[in-house]
């Protein structure tokens, strides 16, 4: 399990692994937003939490189709399926690796982009907390989507159609935490709900992903 995690991480970090890609995408999406909305700082303050959350969500989505596709092409997914490690654990480790290479850098980059978007100082803590707690759910749910579409020719587009509706509750609670943090009202309740969502998704989604992988490997 540890070996698989280290393998996935090193594959992602090395050249051609697309490690910085999600992060760069997040940066560009967030920087483009003021061009669409206008440079008015008070408007940006209102929309900043939502933009950062949508940006994080799209950046997560971008790297999902690589999660199983490369292993599928070179046959290492079959090797993993026949290895003593259960497929559920493989899916869980893949989700963890995806989060470490995509979600975690986004959490680290969010404060910088918060400054760019004129996020008020009291909002930073809640924004980072919501992203840190919410993005693992995005990776876990995304693993299921990637497992469903592995081996399909036009999988990428279908993947977004399948995964985005599943992201609704996470996005909703995450952006709610960040928004309430900015407003200074009680943000702990949605944060707890978001944490519950993340825990439930990380516990249950590997099983659904493994079921889908078994069908696709048949």
């Amino acid at each position: 399990m540890k070996g698989l995690l280290i393998r996935d991480l090193s594959l992602a970090v090395r050249a051609g692994g697309g490690f910085g890609l999600g992060l760069a995408f997040f940066l560009i999406v967030t920087i483009l937003m003021p061009f669409g909305i206008g440079p008015n700082t008070s408007t940006l303050t209102i929309v900043a939490p939502g933009i950062l959350w949508i940006g994080a969500l799209l950046a997560c989505l971008l790297s999902l189709d690589r999660m199983f596709a490369l292993d599928w092409e070179d046959g290492s997914l079959e090797l993993l399926a026949t290895s003593p490690l259960p497929l559920e654990a493989v899916a869980g480790v893949k989700a963890l690796a995806h989060w470490l290479t995509t979600g975690l850098p986004l959490v680290a980059a969010a404060p910088v982009l918060g400054i760019v978007l004129n996020l008020p100082p009291q909002g930073f803590f809640w924004l980072i907390a919501s992203l840190a707690i919410g993005t693992p759910a995005l990776s876990a749910i995304g693993t299921f989507g990637a497992a469903l579409t592995v081996g399909l020719k036009r999988g990428g587009l279908l993947l977004s159609l399948l995964v985005l509706p599943l992201y609704v509750p996470t996005l909703l609670f995450g952006a709610e935490v960040a928004r309430r943090g900015v407003e200074g009202s009680d943000a702990a309740t949605p944060l707890v709900l978001l944490a519950g969502l993340t825990l439930a998704a990380s516990a249950a989604m590997p099983f659904a992903a493994a079921a889908a992988l078994r069908v696709n490997l048949r």
Binding site: L148, L162, P165, P169, A208, A211, A212
Partner: peptide, 22 residues
């Protein structure tokens, strides 16, 4: 695959329904 999606989707549809109330 669609059956698995239907099961997972049902759970998320219900969660979304109550999340939206919030």
């Amino acid at each position: 695959l669609t059956s698995v999606l239907c099961l997972v989707g049902s759970v998320f549809a219900i969660v979304s329904r109550y999340a939206l109330l919030f």
